[in-house]
Simulated scan of single mutants.
Amino acid sequence: MPEMMWSSICVALAAGIGEKFLCRVTLFNLFTKIFENKQYVLLWSSIFSSVLFGLFHLINLGHGAALDATFQQVYYATAIGLAFSYLHIFTNRIWPCILMHFLLDLQPNIANMNAEASPWGPILIIFGIVIIVSIICIYAFNKVEN
């Protein structure tokens, strides 16, 4: 049991730090440079970096994860990525995103690939709402900043 707990903490911490620096700092900044002459640069940067964040989770297929569970993870990681983007933009800090990602990933089964798919209906509704609210918040923030 202590090994599982320690393993879960390490995986959650590594994902929280690594993925946030890759997606919220490196990719987000790259996309802000790409879209710097476009209207709503923060919105477009958030969308593109979040979609890539979601697609990065396809790597779990190579580690034996179930196809449906992986596609669900891609969908909700994209949604959560948009929420993290807004948090990053709003606070202008990366550590709240790292902390939130760590807490979301801190679960006993994070270190194994035995996750099963949930019913699609609730996943689509719940994370669809997260996507919509995040996009509206980023759009509103970006509109004020322009």
Rank of each mutant, 00 (worst) to 15 (best):
A14M: 13
A14S: 09
A15Q: 08
K20L: 13
K20H: 14
K20T: 14
F21E: 10
L27S: 08
L27N: 10
F28T: 03
F28K: 02
N29H: 12
N29G: 03
F31N: 00
F31V: 05
K33Q: 13
E36W: 13
Q39P: 14
Y40H: 15
L42V: 13
W44D: 06
S45W: 07
I47E: 07
F48S: 10
F48K: 09
V51M: 08
F53E: 00
G54V: 07
L55F: 08
L55G: 13
F56T: 11
H57Q: 11
H57R: 04
L58I: 14
I59Q: 15
L61D: 13
G62Q: 11
G62A: 05
G62S: 11
G64D: 02
A65C: 07
A66S: 15
L67V: 14
T70H: 11
F71Q: 08
Q72G: 07
Q73L: 08
Q73F: 05
Q73C: 08
V74K: 01
V74E: 07
Y75D: 02
Y75E: 01
T78L: 05
T78H: 00
T78N: 02
A79Q: 04
A79D: 06
I80W: 04
I80Q: 03
I80H: 01
G81E: 00
G81L: 01
G81I: 00
L82K: 04
L82H: 01
A83I: 00
A83H: 05
F84V: 05
Y86T: 07
Y86F: 14
Y86E: 04
Y86Q: 05
H88V: 05
H88Y: 15
I89S: 00
F90H: 12
T91Q: 04
R93P: 02
I94G: 09
W95C: 02
C97L: 08
I98C: 02
L99K: 02
M100H: 04
F102A: 00
L106W: 02
L106C: 03
Q107D: 06
Q107I: 09
A111I: 05
A111M: 14
A111D: 10
N112K: 05
M113R: 13
A115E: 13
E116G: 10
E116Y: 12
A117F: 12
A117T: 10
W120I: 08
W120Q: 12
W120S: 08
G121H: 08
P122L: 09
I123G: 06
I123T: 15
L124N: 14
F127E: 06
G128F: 04
I129Q: 12
